[in-house]
């Protein structure tokens, strides 16, 4: 089953596989470091469910609709879990 970012609990690091958005909307995200293959971790969420994610050591606030377009996968248990973002 395909996982989307909003279903990931806070502070769990996942790997981004794909951005399910047309190129011109995905581009700004990629420019800000949200690239397929990168590790992202939702660190906070606003009352209406808009997340702040940590990516490459930086914090990025997204809207819920955008977050729902981020297809992710869990890191395997043996994988690196002690990440730069584990605060």
């Amino acid at each position: 089953m395909e996982l989307r970012l909003p279903s990931i609990p806070l502070n769990q690091t996942v790997e981004l596989i794909h951005i399910d958005l047309p190129a011109e909307q995905a581009e700004p995200l990629m420019e800000r470091g949200v690239l397929p293959g990168c590790r992202i971790c939702p660190v906070r969420s606003s009352p209406s469910g808009d997340p702040i994610i940590s990516v490459d050591g930086a914090l990025l606030a997204l809207r819920r609709e955008t977050a729902a377009c981020l297809c992710v996968r869990l890191l395997s248990a043996s994988g690196v879990t002690s990440l730069q973002d584990a605060s």
Partner: peptide, 10 residues
């Protein structure tokens, strides 16, 4: 409709 956006928190 509001478009998507992302905001960096320094």
């Amino acid at each position: 409709e509001a478009t998507s956006f992302s905001l960096e928190l320094p």
